[in-house]
Each structure stands twice: as C-alpha cells, then as structure tokens.
Design a protein around this nucleic acid. Sequence first.
DNA 1: TCAGGGTGTTACCGGTCAGTCACATCTGGA
DNA 2: TCCAGATGTGACTGACCGGTAACACCCTGA
Lengths: 205, 205
Amino acid sequence: MARKIGESEARTAPATSRPRDRIVATARDLFYRHGVKSVGVETIAESAGTNKMTLYRHFDTKDDLIAECVQQAMVEGFAELDQLTARHAGDPMGELRAWIEHATCQIVSEPRGCAMANAAVELAEEDHPVRRIIEDGKKRFREYLVELCQRAGLSRPDLAADTLMLLHEGARISRQSEGVQGSSERFKSAAEGVIASFSERHDKP
Amino acid sequence: MARKIGESEARTAPATSRPRDRIVATARDLFYRHGVKSVGVETIAESAGTNKMTLYRHFDTKDDLIAECVQQAMVEGFAELDQLTARHAGDPMGELRAWIEHATCQIVSEPRGCAMANAAVELAEEDHPVRRIIEDGKKRFREYLVELCQRAGLSRPDLAADTLMLLHEGARISRQSEGVQGSSERFKSAAEGVIASFSERHDKP
DNA sequence: TCAGGGTGTTACCGGTCAGTCACATCTGGA
DNA sequence: TCCAGATGTGACTGACCGGTAACACCCTGA
C-alpha cells in the first residue's frame, strides 16, 4: 500500500453536522473508493472528525455500518428514479430515454461502478446480512425497469428491462477494467439499440 | 466470520503434484470463493498441503500469487474460446450461438461470477499490477467477440459485440445479487434477442 | 558416496484490525 | 444552576496478517 487510506483525504461531511451523519457520509465515501475490506473503522472515525468510540456508540459492528451505508446508497438511488418519473409524468418513453442518459452519466461519474455490487463482491459469505439488502435493492430496481418498459409500450417489456439492466450492470463493472469512455459510450449505444429494437412493430406480415 | 476459511475444505489439487502447482490451484479456488482480501497466505499454504515458507519461495509477495492466479484464469478462459472456434470452423454463427450457450453454462456453474472482475473490485488501487492483466484480458476478449460478430455477418459487429459483452458482464455480476436461474436465463434470452436483432436485414425500404 | 536444491518446521517480527474500558469533557434543556 | 446524555481521549486486548530467519530433512543425480 503506497499511501495510507484516509491520509489527507478531503473531508466529506461538514464538521457542523452530527457525528453519526459524518461517520456514515465518510464511510460511504471511503468504502466506495477503497472497498469495505480495505478501510478500517479507526480511519473512518478519524476522517469523519470523531473517534472510534463514538462510532461504536452508533453502530454495534463494522458490518452494521456497512449495512447502513448500503441502505443509504439504495435510498438515494431510488430517490433519483422517483425524480425521473416525476419529471417525465405522462411521457414514459421520455422517462426511459432520461434513464439511459442518467445511467450513462452515472457510469462516467462513478469510477468504481455500483457501490452495492462491489460490496456484494467483497462480502462473499452467502448469508451475510448486507447481501439481503442488496438483493432487495436489485430486485426492486428490476421491477422499476420492467414497469417503465411496459408503460413505454415496448414489446416484451420483461425481456427489454432485463436486457437494459444487464447492460447497465455490465457497464458499471466493466468501467473498472476499461476506460471511462469505452463503458459509458458502449452502454449508451447498446441501450439505445435495445430501445429501438423493442420499439419496432413486429406485427407486420 | 462464522467458520475459518480453509477449515476442512475439500483439497483442490492432488498431493502428488508439485507444491507450486498445488499452491496456485488452491489459491485460485479460495480466492474465488472468499475473495483475495479474505484469504491469508497461511491458509492457502496449509490448504495446499504445504507451508508458508514454500509459498514464499515461489512467489515474492501475495500480490504476485494473485497475479499468477488471475493470469491462469485468463489463459484457461481463452483456451475455451479457442476450442469453440475450432469446433465450429467455417460456421461463425454456430460459434456465436455456442458461445452464448457456453456463457450461460458459465453463469450457472460459477456462483461468484468472473474471478477477474471480482479481483478488480477488491484491488481498488488504480495502479495495482493485477489490474493491468485484467484490463488486457477484457480488451482481448472484446476483440474476440467483435471479430466473431463480424465473421457471423451481424450488422454493426462492434455494437453487437459490445452489447453481448456488457450483457455477459452484467449477468455474471448480477449472479451474486440474484439467484442462479434469473441471471442465466435472462442473459440467454437477452443475448439471443441481440443476435436476432443484429441478424435482421435493415436494408429494406 | 556426497553435494545441492527443493522442501518442511518452528518461531518470530512489526503492523493492523475490530472492538472494549475507564474516565474526562462538553452541551443543551429544565 | 445543575444534571444527563452525548462526545472525546488514550490505552488496551486478542486475533490475524504478510513476510522473514534459522535449521533440519529428503531426494535426486553425479
């Protein structure tokens, strides 16, 4: 390890907020950038401008903190989807295109892909409590996409949604083994191709 | 951690082979199942029926061992692709369909997805030497797919290959946050849809 | 027979980790 | 003003980690 994690890293939460909030915000940032296994609780506490004891007064174990971080990431993600839905009320196809744009930007701006998927990779134990949260999140996200494809009038909305979701997941994981450009552009092109393909009328003779 | 890693786990390499081979085979298995950060060198050595000192006579550092494991996984993967090519000489569309079948089986049989992608997630440091190996592997694999789509006469082979590759990556990472069935079947359906879509003649009026 | 390289064994080092303890300090509300 | 709960501090535990040292052993090939 060239440099110690947390050393002279940018503060992620203002010192005015409450310790618990700062801890979670800092943990989310450090967990995302370095991985949940590579970041110690002491590093998190100090980067959050507090100490280990206070951290353990709010979370029984490190796993509990990880769970809270994953939960928050999920809530934020769905809030963004809700905004998409609200902004394109009555225009499902517009919402679908907006989601593709949103997802493309996400791939560009998030160098390490999906925080939840990464956590699932690191927490390999099958019965790890965090995995449950992640599974629920992915399932709920799929439901959103299926329903959106239905509303947008795509043929075979299930298949269209699954295709889009796999493309999205694939692009976010590939982002880590390729450049930014590759993944985001390839995702966008592929997703637009899928929309086009499932929008075509297949009921002609 | 409920049970210690390596405790009463099935031996992965026969005791007759050379220590180095046993070490790599055991490491690949344990790294894959538990993650590279969660498995210690001592555990690997003992599970391989040898000891830490012998391990360090063959590999300077743990990272070197990880690199060797990733390299081997890559070599094996491309050997399988070579077999596909050989078995379907002169029938590129057959090879493409065989690859989909091969990938689907892989998703079913490999519960933790792609060993290389997982390693990239765990080894977050941008300049980690193992990442280079992985990037090369993914790049080479994309080249294989592009070339195969070309030979199979798909329209826009680049886009088709990217779509298939993202689907594949996505299914392998989703496999860890969903059941087996979901990921594999969804990948297969989506991939077949892509082939159908890119096989259609778009040059009609 | 002997030499030498590969291997096994044990103990050890310095460091890090998650989690705890006792005690001091601060702050906001009654 | 005073009290209680939240927070800060530093030291500590026991376990694990990657990596090393020293020495004994065994097999092969000359």
